[in-house]
Lab assay of single mutants.
Amino acid sequence: ETGKELVLALYDYQEKSPREVTMKKGDILTLLNSTNKDWWKVEVNDRQGFVPAAYVKKL
């Protein structure tokens, strides 16, 4: 879809709370919100949640 910003997972991340999502290094995720410098909201496999901003980079 146009207008979607994507990020690349630089590291594996295992969710530690229900508000977070698990990702694997190399995953491409849809970026939903990056206003917080530490935690970015992403969508992966129809799930939305937060990942550490340092673990992903914008494509």
Rank of each mutant, 00 (worst) to 15 (best):
R19I: 13
Y13D: 01
G26T: 02
S34M: 08
V7R: 02
G26P: 00
Q48I: 15
M23H: 01
Q14R: 09
V42N: 00
F50D: 04
K57L: 14
T35V: 10
V44I: 15
S17Q: 09
P52D: 02
L6M: 11
W39F: 07
Y11D: 07
W39M: 06
K37C: 10
T30F: 13
K16F: 05
L31T: 01
A54W: 09
L8P: 00
K57F: 10
E5T: 13
Y11L: 09
S17L: 08
L32E: 02
V21E: 00
D38N: 12
E43N: 06
V42P: 00
Y55E: 02
N45C: 10
M23D: 01
K57P: 01
L31W: 01
V44A: 14
D12K: 03
L8Y: 11
D27Y: 05
V7E: 01
F50C: 10
L6C: 09
S17V: 04
V56I: 07
P18F: 08
F50M: 09
N36F: 08
K24T: 10
L59W: 08
W39G: 00
K16H: 09
Y13E: 01
A54T: 11
L29Y: 11
V7C: 12
T35N: 14
Y55P: 01
G3N: 10
E15R: 13
K41F: 15
L31Y: 02
K16S: 09
E15Q: 13
K58F: 09
G26M: 03
A9R: 01
A53Y: 02
K41G: 05
V56H: 00
A54K: 14
M23A: 02
Q48C: 10
V51W: 00
R19K: 13
Q48V: 15
E20W: 04
R19S: 13
E5L: 11
W40E: 01
K25C: 08
D12T: 05
D27L: 05
F50G: 01
L29S: 02
P52N: 02
D27A: 08
E43D: 07
T35C: 12
Q14N: 14
K37R: 12
A53V: 06
L8S: 05
N36R: 09
K57M: 15
L29T: 01
R19V: 10
T35R: 09
R19H: 12
E43K: 10
D12V: 02
K4A: 12
N45W: 09
G26A: 04
K57R: 13
W40Y: 08
E5F: 10
L10M: 10
L31R: 00
R19C: 14
V7D: 00
D46M: 10
T2Q: 14
K37A: 13
T35A: 12
T22E: 04
Q14E: 14
L8Q: 13
W39S: 03
N45A: 11
